Simulated assay, not measured.
Amino acid sequence: MIYHFLNVYLQKSEQQINNDTYNSTSSIGLHNWLIKTVFDEFNDRSEANDFNTKINELKTLRKKSDYQNRIIQQNEAEKARDTAYETLNIIKRNFNL
Rank of each mutant, 00 (worst) to 15 (best):
H4C: 02
I91L: 15
L6N: 00
D66I: 09
A77R: 11
F39R: 04
L30A: 07
L34A: 03
K64G: 02
T87S: 03
S26Q: 10
D20I: 03
S65C: 07
K36C: 03
V38G: 00
L88T: 13
E78I: 15
T83E: 09
D40I: 06
I55G: 00
Y22D: 08
R93A: 15
S46Q: 11
Y3I: 12
V8L: 05
N69T: 06
T87R: 02
R93L: 10
N49D: 14
N43R: 10
T83Q: 07
F51A: 03
Q68A: 13
F5H: 02
R70I: 15
K36M: 11
R62V: 05
Y9M: 03
G29K: 04
S26F: 12
M1L: 09
F51D: 00
T37S: 05
A48L: 03
D50T: 15
N43I: 06
L58Q: 01
R62F: 11
Y85K: 12
K54N: 12
I35N: 04
W33D: 01
T83V: 15
A80D: 04
S27C: 05
F95T: 09
D82A: 14
G29E: 04
Y9L: 03
L10I: 09
K92T: 10
F42W: 02
L61Q: 07
D20R: 04
T87E: 02
Q11K: 14
A77G: 06
R70D: 09
S13W: 06
T83A: 07
I17T: 04
E76W: 01
I17V: 12
A84S: 15
S65T: 13
D44Q: 05
E78G: 01
N75W: 08
N18Y: 08
F42K: 01
A80V: 02
N75S: 14
R62Q: 10
Q16E: 15
R45L: 13
K64R: 12
Y22G: 03
E57N: 11
D44V: 06
I28Y: 05
I72K: 03
T25P: 00
N75G: 01
N75L: 07
T37N: 06
I71H: 07
I55K: 00
D50P: 00
Y67H: 06
I35D: 02
K64A: 12
N89T: 09
K59D: 12
I90M: 01
E14C: 03
Q73E: 15
A48Y: 00
Y85S: 07
A84F: 14
E14S: 11
K36E: 13
V38N: 00
T83F: 05
R93V: 05
I17G: 01
K59L: 14
N32C: 07
R93I: 06
R70L: 13
D40V: 08
N19T: 11
V38D: 00
N96V: 14
T60I: 10
Q74R: 09
N7S: 12
N23I: 07
D50M: 10
N19V: 10
L58N: 04
H4K: 14
E47G: 03
